[in-house]
């Protein structure tokens, strides 16, 4: 939108110059009508543009400046050398652990979640299914739960004396309570299970919307050609859903890289920081423990920003079928 706005204004600038040179009255009149229209466009665009600039881009720029400084927020001074915060990141073992954890969640959770979502969408898109609406609502329901609440509920479920342990004990599957959140492997698994529970329905809704855009006749044609369910899904549904898949993948990757609530509320990063995520670590650096290190936290945030950018770019390229 902003881009097309730019094009329009530069066009009008050329036009204006021409008009001035020739100085014709008629041209002037024509110009003023067009200019008026363009001005209207700009007036409509201006509030959003200015707000985005002030509320998003300016703080981002400020954060970058801050990422080159150190000291408390009341009295920040430049780092020496100026890129020292970024240098420091490379030696920061906790951040590297956090990065590893985050990517582990990403690699394990996103594919499982998206595949589940697409399968559920396919099932619930079936026209012959009864109570379709009810099922859809049920699958989507977890998304209506706030992140903090669900994290706390999972925490109590998986507590050492929690429901899961009690059930497993009574079924005779385990002989003593498992310390789910106090052991690295299981704590990570609980976070991933939580994420899948919370976000599958959300992604399913996008797939459902995508599926509804696929003409039913395409499926009928496939049926006539003798294609079975799997082939229909793989050769018709998936390619036609491609834009949706790309979008959900980008959103999920982006969201997972910025994972915060689960790490904070479910495990608080423990045991010994083996489940901490990057955002959680950034928060710890800024407001978590003692005096805020906003400078270092900003530089960490910029590293995450760059990672998200790169991954989104790769994703877009992979998903782009035009070339």
């Amino acid at each position: 939108m902003i881009q097309s706005g730019n094009r329009v204004i530069s066009g009008s600038l050329i036009f204006l110059k021409k008009g001035e040179k020739k100085g014709g009255v008629i041209l002037n009149k024509g110009r003023s009508i067009q200019a008026k229209q363009q001005a209207a466009g700009w007036i409509f665009l201006a509030p959003a543009t200015i707000l985005i600039f002030i509320m998003s881009f300016w703080p981002m720029f400020q954060a970058f400046i801050m990422s080159l400084k150190k000291g408390s927020s009341a009295n920040m001074v430049w780092q020496t050398p100026i890129y020292h915060n970024y240098e420091r990141i490379l030696q920061d073992k906790t951040f590297l652990t956090a990065m590893g954890n985050t990517f582990l969640y990403l690699i394990v959770e996103v594919p499982i979640m998206l595949i589940l979502a697409i399968l559920l969408a396919q099932l619930l898109n079936n026209r012959d299914l009864k109570f379709r609406g009810a099922f859809r609502t049920m699958v989507f329901m977890p998304c209506a739960v706030s992140l903090v609440s669900y994290a706390l509920i999972f925490k109590s479920l998986f507590a050492t004396q929690g429901l899961i342990n009690t059930v497993l004990m009574n079924l005779g599957l385990i002989s003593e309570n498992i310390n789910w959140l106090g052991t690295t492997g299981t704590a990570r698994a609980v976070i991933i299970i939580g994420l899948i529970w919370r976000w599958t329905g959300y992604n399913m809704v996008f797939y459902l919307a995508g599926l509804q855009n696929i003409e039913y006749s395409v499926y009928e044609a496939a049926k006539i050609d003798g294609s079975n369910g799997w082939k229909t899904f793989w050769y018709i549904t998936v390619p036609l859903l491609r834009p949706t898949i790309v979008m959900t993948a980008i959103m999920s990757i982006n969201g997972t890289l910025q994972l915060f609530d689960e790490s904070v509320n479910l495990t608080n990063g423990g045991p010994s920081n083996t489940t901490i995520t990057m955002s959680h670590y950034i928060w710890n650096q800024s407001l978590g423990v003692g005096v805020a290190k906003f400078g270092y936290a900003s530089s960490l945030a910029f590293v995450v920003f760059i990672m998200v950018g790169i991954l989104a770019f790769i994703n877009l390229k992979v998903g782009d079928v035009r070339d």
């Binding site: 998304c143 992140l147 959300y202 982006n254 969201g255 994972l259 955002s279």
Partner: peptide, 8 residues
């Protein structure tokens, strides 16, 4: 941080 994680 939460908002972007949600996209919702």
């Amino acid at each position: 941080a939460e908002e972007t994680a949600d996209a919702d």
